[in-house]
């Protein structure tokens, strides 16, 4: 009944309190502290992010410096097993690279590709969604039909297609230089539809609200209204998709690298590491593929859990 919702606690920040107080008072912060799983996944995500960021400082070895590598160190199992070497906590691979260090460095690449492609998809998707929703008519039809068509292909297929075209155009040597950009482009382009659809839906709701009419009344240009008025009010769901997409983008990158169309083995990402290790799985050197695999799983899972929580926290119906 109507009174029940009216009586529900409303934000009462009457005296404009400081930022910390506002954050404490915030409903999202509250729901965050109330969910232990979310807190754990946030801590794990943060730890992984930091260790990737500071990999050069914390990694025990530099796996990309050939001078420090010795073929004599190859195929050491993890340190706690009988034949392990205390220098290599998680063992070494066929070239004598420390697995722990390659994971730390690999995560950097995975995360960088993930963040960049999500950002790219977000910019493209949000812009097209805003245009489609706010302008409507032919613009809307064209954008949304393209989106519909794209949705009929699996994302990985589109990524493979773009990757293949880029490879063909650039040639094998120069491809090495642009591989990062191609990955971002191919993963990003396969994700934009979701943003566009969500944003378009929210814009359709927002654009008929009276605050938008008030802005039209004083003769603001459509683009100004879209960016200054409508966009801030549709960003909530975008943030949710972006978080969930980050996990997906990391996995997609890993899949591409696993299939051999991603980053080269000289600059391995988590996916590349899993692929390399996969060759040795049946000869008994399980640690080469298992540890990068576990890292990837934990990373994707914790980011995903964060995204789930964010979706629930921003959804007023579930609060």
């Amino acid at each position: 009944m109507s009174d029940a919702t009216e009586a529900a606690p409303v934000e009462t920040a009457a005296r404009a309190p400081g930022l910390v107080a506002r954050l404490r008072d915030n409903d999202i912060w509250f729901s965050f502290t109330r969910s232990p799983i979310t807190v754990i996944s946030a801590v794990v995500t943060l730890l992984l992010l930091l260790s990737a960021l500071f990999a050069p400082l914390i990694a025990p070895h530099d796996p990309f410096d050939p001078a420090t590598l010795s073929i004599m160190d190859s195929f050491f199992p993890p340190a706690w097993t009988g034949e392990g070497d205390p220098r290599f906590l998680l063992g070494t691979d066929d070239q004598g690279r420390d697995i722990l260090s390659t994971i730390l460095y690999g995560m950097r690449i995975s995360l960088a590709v993930g963040f960049a492609s999500v950002l790219f998809a977000m910019v493209v998707g949000v812009t097209l969604g805003l245009l489609a929703g706010y302008l409507g008519g032919v613009v809307d039809s064209v954008i949304m039909r393209i989106a519909d068509v794209q949705l009929t292909f699996p994302a990985i297929l589109i990524a493979l297609l773009i990757d293949g075209v880029a490879r063909g155009v650039a040639g094998p040597n120069s491809y090495q230089d642009i591989v990062f950009g191609v990955l971002v482009l191919s993963i990003g382009l396969s994700f934009w539809v979701q943003y566009a659809r969500t944003v378009r839906g929210s814009v359709l709701v927002e654009k008929n609200k009276e605050y938008v009419l008030a802005a039209r009344l004083i003769g603001l240009r459509p683009w100004t209204i879209m960016v200054k008025h409508v966009l801030p009010n549709v960003l909530g769901p975008v943030l949710v998709i972006a978080t969930i997409n980050l996990a997906l983008a990391i996995i997609t990158e890993a899949t591409l690298s696993f299939l051999g169309v991603g980053v080269p083995p000289t600059q391995p990402s988590l996916g590349t590491l899993i692929r390399i290790g996969n060759d040795f799985l049946f000869s008994g050197e399980w640690w080469i593929t298992i540890f990068p695999g576990i890292t990837l799983a934990i990373l994707a899972l914790s980011v995903n859990l964060l995204g789930d929580w964010l979706r629930d926290a921003l959804n007023p119906k579930l609060r």
């Binding site: 009944m1 109507s2 009174d3 029940a4 919702t5 009216e6 009586a7």
Partner: peptide, 21 residues
């Protein structure tokens, strides 16, 4: 006025208060 509790009174009588009320 809205929020005075008139609808809540009705819901309370028929046992259909919206949780956590």
């Amino acid at each position: 006025e809205s929020g005075a509790g008139k609808s809540i009174t009705g819901s309370a009588i028929i046992g259909l208060l919206e949780p956590p009320g």
